[in-house]
């Protein structure tokens, strides 16, 4: 590198540093993540902030996923600390069986602790948890999904069974979209499968009786 370009780089660095020092940080005016996580967003107990993060109740007239009942344990550094029979030796699936029905776990063979990390397992909203929504995309998703954003991270890995009534509350759009498609598909088969069978029989009768089958 020539001396000239070195000087330009140094000057540039100096300029950027001075401008960063020269401005006061504005307090966040909305409740979405700012990235200044220690001071602004993630004070312990700020539950309601997380209910309104991207992917929370706000999107698409309330049709997106919501988290109606955040549990206390989701904010603890050790989510299992008051689980009496908990032991690191017990397999997660023993209690978290419903969380093993998704593409990540079943198809890609990703284990629980690859995202929820090692012992003690932190609650997903604990303020240093890698799965805290303010850094989930960067700390967890981006390990495999290069360039993951907070919006991308609002994909629901442990989605509810879309046809169960549970999904109606937790993820209304998924529930209604899947039921719409099932009724559409079911309707086509319920009407046209029997119809085709009767049609086939009628066609055979017309052929066997050797009468002009088509009324010409």
């Amino acid at each position: 590198m020539s001396i000239g370009s070195t000087i330009i780089c140094l000057l540039g660095a100096l300029f950027m540093t001075s401008s960063a020092f020269g401005q006061a940080m504005d307090a966040p005016t909305d409740l979405a993540g700012t990235g200044y996580f220690r001071d602004q967003d993630t004070l312990p107990g700020s539950f309601r902030f997380y209910q309104q993060l991207p992917g929370g109740e706000s999107g698409f007239w309330g049709m997106g996923p919501s988290r109606p009942n955040l549990r206390r344990s989701s904010f603890k550094i050790d989510a299992h600390d008051d689980v009496v029979y908990y032991s690191p030796e017990v397999r997660c699936q023993k209690c978290h069986e419903p969380q093993t029905k998704d593409l990540h776990y079943l198809r890609m063979g990703i284990t629980c602790v690859q995202c929820h990390r090692g012992q003690p397992v932190a609650g997903v909203y604990q303020y240093y948890s890698p799965l805290n929504p303010i850094r989930r995309h960067a700390y967890v998703c981006a390990k495999c999904h290069e360039g993951a954003t907070p919006s991308f991270a609002s994909y629901m890995v442990h989605e509810p069974n879309p046809i169960a009534s549970e999904a109606q509350g937790r993820f209304p759009l998924l529930y209604y979209a899947v039921w719409f498609m099932l009724i559409l598909a079911g309707g086509v088969f319920v009407i046209f499968l029997p119809y085709t069978v009767f049609w086939w029989i009628r066609d055979l009768v017309a052929k066997l009786t050797r009468r002009p089958s088509h009324g010409s």
Partner: peptide, 12 residues
């Protein structure tokens, strides 16, 4: 769009 629309898209 919000990433959770991918849940819906996959099922549809």
């Amino acid at each position: 769009m919000p990433g959770w629309l991918l849940n819906v898209a996959l099922w549809v």
